[in-house]
């Protein structure tokens, strides 16, 4: 029994540390990545995983219905809202012609289709500040 509890506690500790690391990755991604799309890509995935780990650790640690149901609800909200919000920001960025990083490979078909869409267009206005 005691051994199992120790293993569980270690597992919870590892989950929490990993969650913190993913949150750090999200911040570093936002800081280091070259354009709004790469930053968002980084942010969306790592934030969801980071908070997911933290909440999962809480669920395992407290093992109460009250904590568990709230943690699960929070995970569900995060997992539902982060992708939707990212999609909205990404779409606006794309349609309003925010400049992509210079190393980005483009797809001509997509560009041609984009031309048929509404929204203001902007040519790539120089390099982005790093």
């Amino acid at each position: 029994m005691a051994g199992e509890t120790v293993i569980l506690e270690v597992f919870i500790f590892v989950l929490m540390i990993l969650g913190a690391l993913f949150m750090l990755v999200a911040a570093l991604g936002i800081l280091r990545m070259p354009d709004v799309f790469t930053r968002m890509s980084c942010n969306a995935k790592s934030v969801t995983i980071g908070l997911g780990f933290l909440l999962f650790a809480f669920m395992l640690h407290f093992r109460e219905l009250g904590v568990g149901s709230r943690a699960l609800a929070t995970i569900a909200f995060i997992a539902l809202t982060i992708p939707v919000a990212s999609h909205r920001i990404g779409r606006s960025a794309y349609l309003s012609g925010v400049s992509l990083w210079e190393g980005t490979i483009r797809d001509e078909l997509g560009e041609a289709l984009k031309g048929t869409r509404e929204g203001p267009h902007k040519e790539d206005a120089g390099d982005e500040k790093r």
Binding site: L21, F22, V25, L28, G29, R32, M33, P34, D35, F37, T38, S41, C42, K45, S46, T48, I49, G50, G52, A79, L100, W101, G103, T104, I105, R106, D107, L109, G110, E111, L113
Partner: peptide, 26 residues
Amino acid sequence: QSLRGGIDVSRRALHPKLPIDPAVVH
């Protein structure tokens, strides 16, 4: 897959050389 996504993006964001090769695809 989300876990894979998180690990993949962590590797890229923490790597000193920032190994990305982005593309916009259709």
